[in-house]
């Protein structure tokens, strides 16, 4: 088991760097290095940011199951950082949409959010993520007490909305959205199973 010091000095910087790589890579491509963004760069950036947002959401939700199954309690210490990366990628995904794709034309953005279900769903997800990001600090956690945990259960509907958004956005090939949805189903299913499985004591009492 890694020491507290190892987690702080090696683990966290390493995870931070790894999680930043997609963003750095994208920034390099925008600056003209590496793989071209293609003839429709705004769309490429939009898809990349959205994809990584969803991936980090699922990675964040995988922390608890992995911690329990592998008996690695220290894994929890990476959860906040991973969640904040999910928020960063999803937030940039929305900003790219509003600023570059729609050129901040509010009437068009409002119409999109109000009338296009897949955008409504995605926008709701980013909106719900915002209070979670704000209250992710130790100070907020202390101040909110037990309500903090209740608030942060919002991550489950957020992840469902994220997968749903992707599903509805795709024109025809549902393979990729299906993979994300399946992973989410496993991660949420595991939690349900943990919660409702017969405990050893109950099983003994029943026999």
């Amino acid at each position: 088991m890694p020491t507290q010091r190892q987690i702080r000095t090696i683990g966290k910087p390493a995870v931070f760097l790894l999680a930043s790589l997609p963003l750095l890579w994208l920034a390099a491509r925008i600056a003209g290095y590496g793989e071209s963004l293609g003839p429709n760069p705004i769309e490429t950036v939009q898809d990349e940011l959205g994809g990584w947002g969803l991936r980090f959401l699922l990675i964040t939700l995988a922390v608890t199951p992995l911690r329990q199954l592998l008996r690695w309690p220290w894994l929890t210490q990476f959860r906040r950082m991973l969640g904040l990366f999910a928020f960063t990628y999803c937030g940039l995904h929305f900003l790219n949409y509003a600023l570059l794709d729609q050129s901040l034309e509010w009437s068009a953005i409002i119409e999109d959010v109000a009338e296009r279900p897949f955008i409504t769903v995605g926008f709701t997800a980013v909106l719900l993520m915002t209070p979670l990001a704000i209250t992710s600090t130790a100070g907020w956690r202390r101040r909110l007490g037990r309500r903090w945990q209740t608030l942060h259960y919002l991550v489950y509907p957020i992840a469902i909305l994220g997968c749903w958004h992707f599903w509805w956005q795709v024109k025809k090939d549902l393979r990729e959205p299906l993979i994300y949805a399946a992973i989410l189903a496993v991660l949420l299913g595991y939690r349900l199973w943990r919660r409702y499985r017969p405990t050893a004591a109950a099983a003994a009492a029943g026999s």
């Binding site: 925008i30 003839p39 429709n40 760069p41 705004i42 769309e43 570059l100 794709d101 729609q102 050129s103 034309e105 068009a108 119409e111 999109d112 009338e115 296009r116 279900p117 897949f118 509805w168 956005q169």
Partner: peptide, 22 residues
């Protein structure tokens, strides 16, 4: 007449780069 999932009112002209408006 919008597509059920997106607006057809505007279009992105390919080749305009990052700051080109629809």
């Amino acid at each position: 007449v919008d597509h059920p999932r997106w607006s057809q009112a505007r279009e992105r002209r390919i080749g305009g780069g990052f700051f080109d408006e629809k």
